[in-house]
Amino acid sequence: MRYDPTLEALARIERKLDLVMQHLEIRDSAPPQPDPLADVRELARRGKTIQAIKAYRERTGVGLKEAKEAVERLDT
């Protein structure tokens, strides 16, 4: 299975970068970006797995299998 960077991975990287910047007291003038997967997480949390998978595929462009696995891994 090949590595496919997803919005989920990017969100984790951004959170880590935010912590590093905070530690170094670096200020970013850009407003914080909302979680691009917030609605997917909410759908998964409410047990609407099929809708969550569909929304994930629309955001990332990945295939059905990859989207299903990603939704199953989401921290809901």
Rank of each mutant, 00 (worst) to 15 (best):
M1K: 00
R2H: 15
Y3G: 13
D4R: 11
A9T: 09
L10T: 01
I13F: 05
I13E: 05
E14V: 10
E14S: 08
R15G: 11
L17N: 07
V20P: 01
M21V: 01
Q22Y: 08
Q22A: 15
Q22M: 14
E25P: 01
E25T: 11
I26P: 05
D28I: 08
D28A: 09
S29Y: 15
P31I: 15
P34M: 06
D35H: 13
P36F: 11
L37P: 01
A38M: 12
A38G: 03
D39V: 05
L43H: 00
L43T: 00
R45A: 12
R45D: 03
R45M: 11
R45T: 05
R46L: 08
Q51F: 09
I53L: 02
I53G: 00
K54E: 05
A55G: 01
R57D: 03
T60Q: 14
T60E: 15
G61K: 10
V62Y: 07
K65M: 15
A67C: 05
K68C: 02
K68W: 04
E69H: 06
E69W: 03
A70T: 05
V71L: 05
V71K: 00
E72L: 06
R73N: 14
R73V: 08
L74A: 03
L74V: 08
D75Q: 08
D75L: 02
T76A: 07
